[in-house]
């Protein structure tokens, strides 16, 4: 499960992700992080059964946590199934099926936006 963790630095420089890993014993995969001077956003992935424990612990540290279900959107009218997106995606979201149609494994997407910039046909976007 993907969780978007919002951190406010007013609470100091607590290493809350590391603390959460130690306290819960759950391994956390950091997919993407964007840290500003006063706040930060970290996209993490944890195994579904452990998500609640991780979420609760992070919240105790003062972080806001939301479950991320969005992923990249493909406009089928614009897409010509070329495959330019296939190799630029760090998460292997895109692949061809047997008929050379582009297929998406949306659950893997971490909304990094690399494919959106690479698509020559403006067929991909991060918002519905």
């Amino acid at each position: 499960m993907k969780l978007l963790v919002k951190i406010h630095k007013k609470r100091g420089q607590e290493p809350i992700i590391a603390r959460t890993v130690l306290d819960t014993g759950v391994l956390i995969n950091v997919e993407r992080a964007n840290i500003e001077s006063m706040s930060g956003e970290v996209l993490i992935e944890v195994a579904d059964p452990e998500a609640k424990r991780v979420c609760d612990r992070l919240k105790e540290f003062g972080a806001e946590v939301e479950r991320l279900e969005d992923s990249v959107c493909r406009n089928e009218e614009e897409c010509i199934d070329c495959g330019e997106c296939v190799s630029v995606c760090p998460q292997n979201v895109f692949s061809f099926d047997e008929e050379w149609n582009i297929t998406l494994k949306t659950e893997k997407c971490v909304l990094c936006g690399k494919c959106v910039e690479a698509c020559p046909h403006n067929a991909l976007s991060l918002h519905q």
Binding site: C82, E84, V86, S87, E99
Partner: peptide, 23 residues
């Protein structure tokens, strides 16, 4: 095939043209 070996590593390939449309 979507993947080739380059300098001892697996490297993914992207097609710019559409094989589906070519068909």
């Amino acid at each position: 095939s979507g993947c080739i070996e380059l300098n001892g590593e697996e490297v993914r390939t992207s097609s710019l043209s559409s094989y589906k449309k070519a068909r």
